[in-house]
Design a protein around this nucleic acid. Sequence first.
RNA 1: GCCGCUAUCGUCUAGUGGUUAGGACACCGGCCUCUCACGCCGGCAGCAGGGGUUCGACUCCCCUUAGCGGUACCA
Length: 482
Amino acid sequence: MTVRVRFAPSPTGKPHVGNIRTAIFNWLYARHRGGKFILRIEDTDRERYSPEALKNLLETLRWLKLDWDEGPEVGGEYGPYFQSERLDIYHRYAQELVDNGYAYYCTCSKERLDRIRKEAEAKGLPPRYDRHCRELGIKGNPTDTDKVIRFKIPLEGTTTFHDEIRGDIRFENKSLDDFVILKSDGFPTYHFANIVDDHLMKVTDVMRAEEWIPSTGKHILMYRAFGWEPPRFCHLPIILGADRSKLSKRHGAVDVLEYRNMGILPEALLNFLTLIGWSPGTEQEIFSTEELIRLFDKDGINPASGVFNLDKLVWMNSEYIHKMDDEKLLEKLTPLIHQRGWSGFSREYLIHIVSLMKTRMRLLNDFVELAPYFFEEPTQYDEKGVRKHFKKEGAKKRLNLILRAFDRLGNFNEETTEKAIRALAEETGTAAKFFIHPTRLAVTGMTFGPGLFEILATLGKQKSISRIKRAVEFIEKNCEIC
RNA sequence: GCCGCUAUCGUCUAGUGGUUAGGACACCGGCCUCUCACGCCGGCAGCAGGGGUUCGACUCCCCUUAGCGGUACCA
């Protein structure tokens, strides 16, 4: 039978790296086995629902190139794929459970529930529903707004399921609650909708976050009540923040699209996230998506939760940037260049700058942060640099020597500029770096970057000279010692 | 509280009874060099604790501890 897995997010907020990692594992597994990846929207909580969240979710999946075979916008033969459009299905199956004695209507008020919960807590007992309505035989309809339907947990015995990466897990039925399967607003709860849909959509493998382990016992009991064969279960480790608690806002960026904004490539994020909780058993770190599909399988999944390490993500991103060819990289950079309002530069010029900057970039955004001087005049000089290279005995004199030498240059390129400066160093008996550093600061405003002669050649004679002249004026105005 | 999951360098991990416990990120040296980055070379650093089982445990079992999760008409 062909593998069918699903990613079933709830559209209530921005897609979180933890949720998306679950999507990635499901997607990789489906692609590895040549199966189907189903996207199902669990929008059964009307209070937390947000249309914006759905939009962000689809955008995130598309950005990461996690395509789905069935689900929103693509359809499929087991739809609808929005749970809010399947209410009649849940009603039918919930009523079936009631009719067969596996579930019951409950009219307990919110107030009563709160009260018994508080009482139980006060006595140090587990806060559980007291099964008040279990044997009352209350009649009703799934659409009744004054009732819920609860599942009847067997009073005795144990329920066991096999987790494919953790082994057998067992629960005492006594520890399970008569949980609600259909809410008074007519919507199902997660537990119920989840198993009905997984069954109806012929899901073969449930791969979800480990926070679902404690409720899997309930799910198994429902499968049994329906007489359905449960899917295989595999509970995935979760992603933690630096302090080892569940990753959240206070750990910094958690929304996947924030990483896009920061200049992370989707391939790098996919690679990175896959390697939290999964390993192919080799020492390879960088994988193309095709390789991941080929190598990914359940047996490489680590049961322990892992910490999200931004440094490593950034390193990985730099590996992708460095390996990318200049044309491809320029394509990724073009929107950022436009954002800065830089236009009118030839493709040839841009490609050249990309080639100069590539090994210096770790994030896409670094390009515009680290090399603005290729696009506009420096508006200020690095403060430390000024102290080190401008406020120095003879700095002005050396820049003036350079101006004179450059002015005489017919061909202004890497070789001729370097030759000129080294010659000056020789003549004046000064180390070349005392010419190089102030010149760099003069033309870029910065103290670091590509080789100076590459910069000069790229900028050209006219811009180089005018920028050095401006620096000389700056020195005259601001530095007494020279 | 109760239930459950987990446990190898700071972090991500390899390891499935016999290894000098391997790799990667980060960090620290060095080389290269006009700076920065890349690259290369080297270094620091780990089996949570205690009991078993075994000729032999990082590896298997139990307990403890710690971390995390669940305990809703949220998912």
